[in-house]
């Protein structure tokens, strides 16, 4: 299981622009490297990141081999209603990790 760290403000005013920060532990092995025996190390990366706000997709990113280990993704959205902001990372070898955070909009 991958570790995740999520930073979403617990409270926000309606219409406020909020910053969302996400961090996940992942090796992001590029697939371009070779081990000591000259054997290629197979690619193992996160390929997709999706954020939904009460079920509606608000942000999506495609990740590629040049992205460093433990990808940190930060973006902004407008706080529209109270509810759940959910995150899903998917990648090679069936990798899938979920995380979520609650937000109260007043």
């Amino acid at each position: 299981m991958a570790r995740t760290l999520i930073n979403v403000p617990q409270k926000a005013k309606r219409g406020e622009v909020i910053a969302i920060k996400t961090l996940i532990s992942h090796v992001m092995e590029t697939g371009f490297r070779h081990d000591n025996m000259g054997k290629a190390i197979p690619r193992d990366i996160i390929t997709s990141f999706v954020c939904t706000y009460n079920g509606e997709e608000i942000f999506r990113a495609a990740l590629h081999p040049a992205i460093a280990a433990n990808p940190f993704i930060t973006f902004h959205t407008v706080a529209t209603e109270s509810g759940t902001i959910a995150f899903r990372w998917t990648g090679d070898n069936g990798f899938s990790q979920d995380a979520s955070a609650k937000i109260t909009v007043g």
């Binding site: 920060k21 532990s25 940190f72």
Partner: peptide, 9 residues
């Protein structure tokens, strides 16, 4: 920031 410091993972 403990939510952006990768050491925290």
């Amino acid at each position: 920031d403990d939510t952006s410091n990768p050491g925290m993972l």
